[in-house]
Write a protein that binds this DNA or RNA. Structure first.
Lengths: 274, 274
DNA sequence: TGCTGTGAAACAGTTCACAGCG
DNA sequence: CGCTGTGAACTGTTTCACAGCA
């Protein structure tokens, strides 16, 4: 996902693993909730539950930041909130621009969670001249022509792309040329960026497709369980899934395109060839 | 993220790694684009570039699905589209419900990428009686009271939660009780679900926070480069980041809460203790 | 005593590099 | 000869289990 690690020769310390970084916001959210309830301290166990991870992982994660806990007691909530915020760079304000004010862009502009944690929407930008001047989330939409000026006037380094796929790469290039070095991409396309620019993507339909994969597999397992095949050469889950498939029959798109192929077994894979 | 792997003792084959599954939609998208341009075959190199990964990874990924390529030539685009679609379970139709028709929910309802790849929005559900009956994306919003009936009447197994955080867990429980086994959660909260239910989450502010982390680090590295400290005991990037911090001064939230702490070095870590 | 912090083991994912097939 | 398919090495992440401190 995020790319462009500036090759640091691992000079000991301060190499916080990417996986850990990705969880810090989760911990922060849980801690903020505790803080609001004026809970003074938490154990790794409690906090881990609240954040939806296991406690060993949480402790390991925190160990990369330093020794902020007290043995026998736990972690001081306020202090941890501060340390994690600082580590994430949230003790400063990050102006962001949102480019592409369609349904999604507008929803993002209205999303409160943005402002609440160190991010400030500096501008909304859209290519449609009709949109220009119209208020969205209490802020006038500006035209793409202004993009470069907006970026430099506001010192924006984080851009959010919510344009259609076709426009994304071009917008991305303009953002980068204007000085943006981190991009959150909602357009369903791969962005190519120069080294040193980070891109993270959020793709709704990809997430659904991943769920569908697991869903299909579950259906397969049920079927397999019900079928109660004789043991020995037991069917593996995918067979059952394939069976379900056969019942439903291929829906749209490319039909099997004849045999003459060497997939595991024509189209309905049985047991993998040894 | 996705949980509830039904412990299969790895009876050889058909254990497609989660990381690979997460990339299949990416390959599929790239392949679909090629297919539309009537490109008959691609090499791993070309396809990898289009999908934004490296070719070794792509070949390894495909090797989990079977041997679908031709040595010396590449992959047949149409055939691969079909195989990946099938593997992902997209040869069947998945009805989904969207719960929570606020800005984001409405944007999701209007999002075309849903329908285009095997997913069909079966219903839009909201708790607000005012919303009931109103058309969103050409479809009347239904009240939460109908949730259970909608799920079972349509055989929905995938639910999308776009409610405020406070309502998410409750909605989740109702969805699960009604038969949903895969959930895509946009609410900024941790959902707890029984075994066998998959949850994937999309959290805008988390993505931004991860970007902020890297952004801060970049700023730190620049500063370190400019400062040109004497070599030998070279400052590591975090020091510079801390320095930036000091200039900006802690913004909102918890102040340092005094010394008496054993973090790397009080509040402004210098060089890590040996 | 109860909890953190962390080495060490286990596991997952990526990259390398090349054998082997069309 | 060019490209796939894949063992093997490597890198990153998670989990275990327990020493050690408050």
């Amino acid at each position: 996902m995020a790319t462009g690690r500036t090759h640091r020769p691992a000079t000991r310390s301060r190499g916080i693993p990417e996986a850990t970084v990705a969880r810090l916001p989760l911990y922060l959210r849980a801690l903020t909730a505790l803080s609001e309830r004026s809970v003074p301290t938490v154990s790794s166990e409690e906090l881990a539950t609240a954040a939806g991870v296991n406690s060993a992982k949480l402790r390991k994660d925190f160990s990369y930041l330093g020794s902020y806990g007290t043995r026998g007691v736990g972690y001081d909530v306020e202090y941890l909130v501060y340390q994690i915020s600082r580590e994430l760079g949230l003790t400063q304000d990050w102006p962001v621009v949102i480019v592409g004010i369609g349904n999604l862009g507008a929803a993002l502009a209205n999303y409160g969670g943005f402002a609440s944690r160190g991010f400030r929407v500096a501008a909304l930008i859209d290519a449609d001249p009709e949109m220009a001047g119209k208020p969205v989330a209490g802020m006038p939409v500006q035209h793409t022509d202004e993009l470069e000026k907006i970026i430099s006037d506001n010192g924006v380094s984080i851009g959010v792309i919510a344009t259609p796929a076709g426009a994304a790469q071009q917008v991305c290039e303009r953002l980068v040329a204007a000085g943006v070095t981190s991009i959150l991409n909602f357009a369903p396309t791969v962005l190519s960026v120069p080294d040193g620019v980070d891109v993270r993507k959020v793709d709704l339909s990809i997430e659904l497709q991943i769920l569908a994969f697991h869903e299909q597999r579950k259906a397969g397992e049920e079927a397999a369980a019900e079928a109660a095949l004789p043991p020995g050469e037991r069917a593996h889950p995918a067979d059952a899934a394939a069976a379900v498939d056969a019942v439903d029959a291929p829906r749209d798109s490319a039909p099997p395109h004849a045999a003459s192929r060497k997939g595991p077994e024509g189209d309905v894979p049985a047991v993998m060839p040894a």
